[in-house]
Amino acid sequence: MPAEPAVPTASLTPRKDAALRAFAGVEAVPGSSKPDPILVADGVTRRFGGLTAVDVGHVEIQRGSITALIGPNGAGKSTFFNLLTGFDTPDDGTWTFNGQSLAGVPSHKVARRGMVRTFQLTKALSRLTVMQNMLLGATGQRGENFWRAILPMTWRKQEQENTARAEELLARFKLDKKRDDFAGTMSGGQRKLLEMARALMVGPEMVMLDEPMAGVNPALTQSLLGHVKALREDGMTVLFVEHDMDMVRDISDWVLVMAQGRVIAEGPPDAIMADEAVIDAYLGGHHDAPLDEAQEQEQLAAAEAELREQEGDR
C-alpha cells in the first residue's frame, strides 16, 4: 500500500471505532433503527410503467459511518440514489436528512443542505480546467450572482480563499500537477478522483458515491479506497454503491442489500457476506461479472421492447 498519510492502514481508527461501537447494538434486520441516523427514508417507491424499480420500506443511515449499498443489477440502487438526491421524483414516500424533509426538494438544494453525490459515469466538465471544476464546487460564492460578477472586487478575495482550499484538496488527491489541464484530458480514474474532490469543495456532511470504483485502473483502486475512508475520518457520512465485495468488506462499517427494489438485508459486512438470503439474491441470476452501464441499459431496453411488442400485438 502506498503511503497515504491521512489514512492509517490499521483497521481501527478512532472514527472507525466510534462507528463500529454505534452499530454494536443495532439489530441486523432490514429497517433497523440506528442510534444517530443522518438520513431516514420511509416508503420511497418509484415505478416505471408497470415495473417497480424502488420500493424501500424503512431505512436509516448512521451518521459518521461508511455504509455500503449492494445488490444485483437492476436492484434499483442507482434509482434510489437519484430519488434521495432529487435527480428523480418518487411516486410515493418521504425521507429526511438531518431531521428535515427532502421530499420534493430540487437536487441543487439537496446538495446545499449537505448531501452531495457523485455519478456512476463520471461527470468531469471536460472543457473546464481541473481548477475550474474544483472552484465550481464551492458554495455561497458572491461572484455567482450576475450583478456582483461584473465587479471582480466583490468576489476576488473569496475566490482566492476557495482557490487555496481547492489546491489543498487537489494536493491530497494528487491532482495538483493537473491543476490547469482540461478535465477532459484526464484518465477515468483521475476523473473519479476529481469528482470526489469537487464534491468535497461543497463542504458536505454526507457524500453519496455511485460506484466510485467502476472503470478505475486497479493501480488507482487502493488510493481511492483510502480517500473514501478518509472522508469518514474527516467526520463525513458516506453511502456508496459498489459491486466489488472485497472492497465493501474492506471499507464499510455497515451494509444494505437491495434486490428487486427492496432492502432485503442489512448488517455488518461479514455477517452480510454469510447471509443465505443475500447470497441467493445476489447470485441468483447474476453469478457472473457485474454488468456495465451499457449492458444494463440494453437489458432494460430489451425488457421495454418486449413489453411494447406485447402491447402492439393486442
Binding site: V116, L136, N145
Partner: peptide, 27 residues
C-alpha cells in the same frame, strides 16, 4: 467580465454537463 467570473464559470459548466452542476448545489 462575466465569463471570467464565477457566474460565467457556472454557465460554461452547464454547457458541459448540467447534472454535475446541479449536484454541486447550483440552480
Amino acid at each position: 467580465l462575466l465569463m471570467r467570473s464565477p457566474w460565467g464559470r457556472v454557465l460554461k459548466a452547464i454547457r458541459e454537463d448540467e447534472d454535475a452542476v446541479r449536484s454541486l448545489g447550483k440552480n
